[in-house]
Write a protein that binds this DNA or RNA. Sequence first.
RNA 1: GCCCUCGUAGCUCAGCUGGAUAGAGCAAUCGCCUCCUAAGCGAUAGGUCGCAGGUUCGAAUCCUGCCGUGGGCACCA
Length: 593
Amino acid sequence: MKQHILDLLRQALDRLAEDGVLGDAERPEPQLERARDPAHGDFATNIALVLAKPARLKPRDLAERLVAALPESSEVARLEIAGPGFINFTLAERAYQELVPRILEQGHDFGRSRLGAGQRVQVEFVSANPTGPLHVGHGRGAAYGAVVADLLQAVGFEVHREYYVNDAGRQMDILATSVWLRYLELCGEALRFPSNGYRGDYVWDIAATLHREHGDDYRVDTAELFAALPPDAPLEGEPADQAGDKEAHIDALIAAAKQGLGDNRYRYVFELGLNTILDDIRADLAEFGVEYQEWYSERSLTERGAVNKAIERLRESGHVYEQQGALWFRSTDFGDEKDRVVVRENGQSTYFASDIAYHMDKLERGFDRVIDIWGADHHGYVPRVKAALQALGDDASRLDVLLVQFAILYRGGEKAQMSTRSGEFVTLRELRREVGRDAARFFYVMRRCEQHLDFDLDLAKSESSDNPVYYVQYAHARICAVLRQAAERGLAIEPSASATHLERLVEPHEQALLRTLGRYPEVVEQAALKAEPHQLTHYLRELANDLHTYYNAHPFLVEDSALRDARIKLILATRQVLRNGLGLIGVSAPETM
RNA sequence: GCCCUCGUAGCUCAGCUGGAUAGAGCAAUCGCCUCCUAAGCGAUAGGUCGCAGGUUCGAAUCCUGCCGUGGGCACCA
């Protein structure tokens, strides 16, 4: 509908331009907005105000010229110039009524478009280190990323969903070492677990697997091995007098593990930890309705020399220098606040170096657009990654980084962030178990991503209209109930084809519902282009409200068969849009509740 | 200290590429089930859009400063 009016406006502008009315000024794309006040019709444009100055006309005079130049359309019932020079469009009722057969015919495809014209977009999201289960913070990134990806796909982009697996690097060594130490404890060794180790129960579980399947094969004499370790930082309950460096301590422990186990056995423990956790993450996300096209291994990047290649390219283009034994990237040349190390004094490349290589690879794979979804705590990272792409001569504007703020759980009005048992974050799995997948998906995307999310667990679980998930789902179930009722009464529930009888939809509630239905494609488009799923959740709430209001005001299964036919078609169309919208945010549309 | 984010009704939030009288939901108060699921609907009330300047025909929206929230400022990942 909106596109149609825009077409009319463009044609009118063309005519005025031909007549020389507009002068030489650049012509902006006309802006067409939904009128806030019904008295202003359905759509309004400020184009006359914008063009008045270059055309050297008063806004209202220009508006009149424009209106005169607008082609006739059966969809437009009324045109009006208002206020300082807005042009208001009121659509014909028929234009709305014809939505119903269109929605029913297009079904699942209603609201989808080809706006993206098959452009390839990569969306990378979650990408949590495989050092433990996903927690509720990752859950928000997962839900948000999945919906953004689905929205983009719905408007015609070819979407590639990717998880970057940090399967190399120090954190993974710490995990492997933690698993091994727990294993040694299971073997009966007495040892002091490092302050920087991973302490979660899942580490014990992996260690138990190792112990069960391999007995004492991985056991070494710990006393000898750990004899010369530099001191650790004190654990809770330990005296703080001889505080050591926990980083140096854990690094020495890793080295000791590698030495004690030898390459093969160390690698086995490492892989066992990685695979166990990665499998868990995969299953967790799959149960959450989040699927990927690719799980991209950081290690593979290193193994085929991509990191070295990236560093070489930076070197060739003269953007790196050596200082104090390390290799630095001069990111300040590209707006970063300080230069960054890419190769450490000990010869190891940094995580940032891998990231440069990874992003270089993304662009080389030919995506038209690359979207990274990160936790907001990584925002300081954005300038340096963009700087690196610029230094490599790539187009950094192809990369968009979307930052997702933390989610804070509330239970009984109190923060419930920490789980009392382990002192760790609540896991995504625990959250899903508690509130269910539908509520979790909906609540996670209900707010703008840069907004801190207060996640009210009690509300998410409540079966009342306060709970937006139930509210929307109930609208869907209610329509299904009406159809079941019709079947029980032996009424024809197969609505007649085409637009027959739709002129009977004259009640204000029906007109309101039709207007909301007509907005759906615009909402999907905006939500997709701006990466704002919350627009869709807000819309669905409105649509459900229109339906509930209508339901309370008018019976659908009336004696008058023509009216009944029209009303059933209207609620069928509503059901379709509810389904489509819920589907896009990964929430089910139940037939009964 | 520097950088980023957010600050809108009692609470949680929309609205922010400048537009017409700032909107929802919850909570509060008052109503609506012999009728397709009351997991619903209606009504009332609720505002110095953090504060102060600036830009202009017009600012919640853009700019500057200040105040407050959260986060970031590693040869960690």
